[in-house]
Design a protein around this nucleic acid. Sequence first.
DNA 1: AGCGCTAGTCTCTTTTTGAGACCAAAGATC
DNA 2: GATCTTTGGTCTCAAAAAGAGACTAGCGCT
Lengths: 136, 136
Amino acid sequence: MIRNANRKPVIDAKECDISGWDMENCPVRDVLDRIAGKWSTLLLEALSRQPFRFGELRRLVPDISQRMLTQTLRDLQRDGYIDRKVFPTKPPSVEYRMTELGHSLFEPLSKVLQWAEANHPSVKAARVKYDESELA
Amino acid sequence: MIRNANRKPVIDAKECDISGWDMENCPVRDVLDRIAGKWSTLLLEALSRQPFRFGELRRLVPDISQRMLTQTLRDLQRDGYIDRKVFPTKPPSVEYRMTELGHSLFEPLSKVLQWAEANHPSVKAARVKYDESELA
DNA sequence: AGCGCTAGTCTCTTTTTGAGACCAAAGATC
DNA sequence: GATCTTTGGTCTCAAAAAGAGACTAGCGCT
C-alpha cells in the first residue's frame, strides 16, 4: 500500500522555532550574510596573518576585481573586523589590519577552514559520485 | 618627512604562498565557495537538527525561493553533506537528511554560528560607529 | 616627456538571484 | 463530480549582484 504524501510532517515548523530560532532579527543571518561572501573568508585569512595594503591583497588574490576588493574590505571594516589606516604619502598608501573582533571571529572560522582542507578529498569524491549517478 | 608610497611592502605575496597557501586548486576555496552561499548555512543548521522535507524547509526559511531551495539543496547533496530520499507516494515526498560528512562539517561551523550569536551586539555597534563616521 | 605606482571610482556587460506561473496526479471538500 | 489543495519541483522573465576594463591624480624614475 502506497502511503499518502500527506503524511504527518517530521516536525512542525513552529516547534523548531521554539528550539531557539528566531527568524526575524536573526543574529546568525545578520552576521553570516557578510562573512559568507565569496571573498570575505579569503581576505580574513590573509589579514589574520598580518596587515596588508590594498595592492598587496590584490596581488594575493589575483582573481578578485578591484571593485569587489574595495567593496568587501569596506564591508569587513563596517562590521568591525578590520581597520583601515591611510598613510599621508604621495600617492597615499592604505593599510588594512585585523581588529580584535576580527581575530576572535577568525578563531572559530579557521576551524572550518581546516576542516575544508582536511576533507577536501571526501567532498571531491562525493561530487564525482553524484555526477556519475546523474549521468545515468 | 613624508614617506614614499613605494615603501617596501609588508611582505611579498610569494612568501605568503610559501606559508601554506596554494592559489591554484585551493581546497579551502573549493569547499567554502559552496557553503558560503546565502542559504547553505541556514539549511545546514536546520538539517543538523533532524531530517526535513522540501516543503518543511521552505516553510522554515520563508524568504527562500523554491528555485534557490532546490538549487542549494542540490549543491549540498552533490558535495555530500546531505542525502535526498524520495518516497514513492502520490504525490512523491522527498526527505533531506544530513550525512556523516555533513555533521562533521557542521561541528566547526556551528562554532562560527555561536560566535555570530554571541558577538552580534559588537558587530551592530561597529556598524553604527562606521555609519556615523561616514556621515561626517 | 613618458611611464609606472598608489587606491580607488565609473561604466558596461555578464552572471546570479528572486518572483511567480505552471505541472500532474491524488485526496479532501462541497 | 467539479473544484481546491498538496506534493516537489521546473520554466520564464525581471532585478540585483558581480566581473572586466577604462579612467583619475600627483609624484618618482629614466
